[in-house]
Amino acid sequence: MKIHLTSIFVDDQAKAEHFYTEVLGFVKKHDVPVGEKDRWLTVVSPDEPDGTELLLEPVGHPAARTYRDTLVEDGIPLAQFAVDDVRAEYRRLHGLGVRFTQEPLETGPVTTAVFDDTCGNLIQIATKPR
């Protein structure tokens, strides 16, 4: 069994496409119309074009909104992405106007930071444990 796709609910798919590609630097993999206004929209890491896809799924269900709002209030991220250097990535994203709810924090071998993806979620970036 392999994890080939994971999903995250987003408020607005167009906004999510912009943030996840232009700001975070992921690459669009699939973009297929579904129904009247929704899309099957996935992105991948440019380092792993055949790696795990992230589905940017429209948040339709009201329960999803409550769930996300409650987690966001407590600063809890809904996904984690690996980066080589959290501090460098923090500086880069901060410079682009990204809002961090947790600045880089060193905890033993791992450094983490948490930011707002502008689509309703908090995302954690972390160094890969070596």
Partner: peptide, 13 residues
């Protein structure tokens, strides 16, 4: 700090 950060510091640090 958010609740998440406080929890991270207590558990990881």
């Amino acid at each position: 700090q958010t609740l998440f950060e406080i929890c991270s510091r207590l558990s990881m640090k």
